[in-house]
Design a protein around this nucleic acid. Structure first.
Length: 110
DNA sequence: ACGTTGACAGGGA
DNA sequence: ATCCCTGCCAACG
């Protein structure tokens, strides 16, 4: 059984923070696990990954990638079709996101 | 208390 | 480019 959908329980405050940030990432943009950890101000990349593993089904999880631009482990194929839909900038000849262009800092700029 | 695990990150070979 | 190791930190058995 995979955790494609969020559990019915109530998320704690940290989980809420992480998920709310992920929901704000614009289409065609991404944030790394570490970026999100810094943004929420506590925990680390692995904690963010843990939250996404459990609750990611309810948010645009494909917009959360590794620091090197690789999509979430085990979800590469699904992520790739989303990037194609959203026009996410990719590295040429690779299945990786171009972080230079696609990285979102939480601000309003493009 | 301890060892293992995990949707991670960074550095070296 | 890939593989391997270490650092990291919370959750589990």
């Amino acid at each position: 059984m995979s955790e494609a959908l969020p559990p019915d329980g109530e998320p704690d405050e940290y989980t809420e923070d992480v998920l709310s940030v992920v929901e704000r990432i614009p289409p065609g943009r991404v944030m790394s696990y570490g970026d999100i950890a810094e943004y929420v101000g506590r925990g680390g990349p692995r904690q963010v990954g843990s939250v996404m593993s459990q609750w990611g089904g309810g948010v645009p999880w494909w917009r959360v990638v590794r620091a090197d631009g690789r999509p979430a482990s085990g979800h590469e194929v699904r992520a790739l079709s989303r990037y194609a839909e959203e026009g996410t900038p990719m590295r040429p000849g690779s299945d990786r996101v171009n972080m230079r262009q696609a990285r979102w800092d939480g601000g309003n700029e493009g």
